[in-house]
Computed example of a mutant assay.
Amino acid sequence: MKIDVVRPRDLGEPELSAWRQMRRASPHLASPWLAPEFAQAVSHVRDTARVAVIWEDTDLAGFLPFEPCGPRAARPLAAWLTLAQGLVHRPGFETDGSDLLKGCGLDVFEFEYLVGGQPWFTSDENRTAMLLDLESGYDGYIKFFRETSPKSYKTIAYKERKIQRDIGPLTYEYASNDHFGALLRWKSDQYRRIGRADRTAKPWVAALIERLRDVQTPEFSAPLSVLKIGDRPVAAHFGLVSEGVMAGWFPAYDPELGSYSPGLIHHLRLVEAAAARGLRHIDTGTAGDYKQTICNGTLPLSEGVARRPGAASALHWLRTAPARRIKRTIVGNPRLHALADRALKMRGRA
């Protein structure tokens, strides 16, 4: 096994074609977060972005996108944003995790949302992504929703009628060139309300979003879907699409119209449009209360740290292990998690 570490933006068409083919051959690698187009876009806005190109003799065998997070330590590319991470590889690929890290010039690789089929990385904790499974089409999804959450379905239908009666007719556009500014304002306001860091305020994230909006190819796209009343946007979503999968990223709605639940109305319109375009599922990220109601599928993920013996690995453990242990304790204890969430929301309102 031979490994070359390069910037994703420097990959040539043979490497990009092989990367796409590997994802196409393995459904668990279909997430847009693992697409070469995403890695290249990140590479154009973050000079630290790297990808390990793995060779077996003269054949390409895999690609591991990453960026440094300390001495001989790395995490997945744009890990702060992505909800699917890991090594993209050809079917049947086998390797040893220690050899893989050594070839990348690393002693540590930490991850939060590792996709399945990655035995070379040892995980510490299992996680679950919530999916909107569209294999049975829109009618199949609606049948599931009506049967499992009849009250929620009726409430959304009632509010859709009410908002149109009170304000005006709704229109929906799957891929719009307008109203992106409104989405970002709503999302920033939401982050403040819940006391979370505003991802969209980071200059490199804003630059990445703008670059992704310009990528519209058969292999990858980043549609902005908008629900409107006349020329007024009321809800929107910016996501990534590749290999029949949509990665939900930035959904938001006009808080002035929150009583009408425009976000949930938009959700059903998005599902209908995605199913009509042949998408297999929409990845909404890890669990949340409302996702338990609207989602009809799951995807296993894992969190952990892969290490090689050495001084850099030991220093990384000393620096990060206490914080990781505290985080797991809080997340695993419903009472502590609720208190932490309440504290963040109070800070956001301050």
Rank of each mutant, 00 (worst) to 15 (best):
V6E: 13
P8W: 14
P8E: 13
R9T: 08
G12D: 11
E13R: 11
P14N: 03
P14W: 01
A18C: 06
S26A: 12
S26N: 10
P27G: 09
L29H: 13
A30Q: 13
L34G: 14
L34A: 13
A35Q: 13
F38G: 13
Q40M: 11
Q40Y: 02
V42L: 08
S43C: 12
V45L: 01
V45T: 07
D47S: 14
D47H: 11
A52D: 10
V53I: 11
L60F: 03
A61H: 10
G62Y: 02
F63S: 07
C69G: 03
R72M: 10
A79I: 03
L81I: 11
T95G: 12
T95E: 11
D96A: 14
G103Q: 04
C104G: 07
F109A: 05
E110P: 00
L114I: 05
V115W: 04
G117R: 00
E125C: 01
D139R: 05
R146I: 09
S149Q: 15
P150W: 01
S152K: 12
S152Q: 12
K154A: 15
I156L: 03
A157E: 12
Y158T: 15
E160H: 06
R161Y: 00
R161E: 11
I163C: 07
P169E: 15
P169W: 05
T171G: 09
E173N: 11
A175S: 11
N177R: 10
H179E: 05
R185T: 14
S188P: 01
S188K: 09
R196P: 00
R196C: 07
D198A: 05
D198S: 05
P203S: 09
V205H: 04
A206P: 00
E210Y: 00
R211Y: 12
R211P: 05
T217K: 03
L224D: 07
L224G: 08
S225L: 12
V226S: 10
P233T: 15
P233Y: 08
V241H: 03
V245S: 03
A247K: 14
A252Y: 01
P255H: 04
G258K: 14
S259D: 15
S261G: 03
A273W: 03
A273K: 06
A275D: 06
R277T: 02
R280S: 14
D283W: 11
D283Y: 12
Q292Y: 10
T293S: 03
I294G: 01
L299Q: 13
A323G: 06
I326M: 10
A340F: 01
A343M: 05
A350T: 05
